[in-house]
């Protein structure tokens, strides 16, 4: 079977909080193939950490379950899917709101989805109560190099330049 992606990987791990660092570091190492900046990599790590933590403490509420993490690369876009078979989110729109938390007593800030949304380009949440939740996030890695005048070239211009050079 040929993948429709340039590259893809999948991880299944137990919903243990010690896996939060494992998950974000693994995705960062995988996404590094697209040659992101340090800042882009930090954004990806933070977003993955938020999604995985949500599955562990909200989805499974600290009981044991499996968190699935899938990452794919296509052109210069990294797509990350974090899913669980936990208790699901009753009101997704409410959960997306900044500062909204159902776990205020645990000193949760309610910023998880807000961080995912601002650090990634797109965030989709699919959730069914008692079935589980899937968060899909995408980020475009912008390739920037400096031309002779020291100005930054966007990726589209670069592609054109490459096409010219190859012709």
């Amino acid at each position: 079977m040929k993948s429709r992606y340039d590259n893809e990987m999948e991880l299944h791990f137990l919903s243990k909080s010690s896996n939060e660092a494992f998950a974000r570091i693994t995705v960062a190492a995988f996404a590094a193939q697209l040659d992101p900046t340090i800042e882009e990599l930090a954004d990806i790590k933070t977003a993955v950490s938020e999604a995985v933590t949500n599955s562990i403490i909200h989805g499974y509420e600290n009981t044991e379950g499996i968190v699935k993490l899938k990452a794919t690369l296509l052109d210069n876009v990294v797509e990350i899917e974090v899913s669980d078979n936990g208790k699901g989110i009753e009101d997704v729109e409410l959960a997306r709101k900044p500062l909204y938390t159902t776990k205020g007593n645990l000193e949760r800030s309610g910023m998880g989805f807000t961080i995912m949304e601002s650090f990634m380009d797109e965030v989709e949440i699919q959730s069914v109560v008692e079935i589980g939740t899937k968060v899909t996030m995408r980020k475009k890695i912008k390739k920037e190099v400096e031309n002779e005048e020291g100005e930054e070239l966007e990726e589209t211009e670069l592609t054109q330049e490459n096409t010219l050079m190859n012709s």
Binding site: R24, K45, T46, E50, T53, E107, R108, M111, G112, I115
Partner: peptide
Amino acid sequence: SFMDSAGIGLLIG
């Protein structure tokens, strides 16, 4: 080197 929103909750507390 790394902090996510858990750190925000920690600092507010």
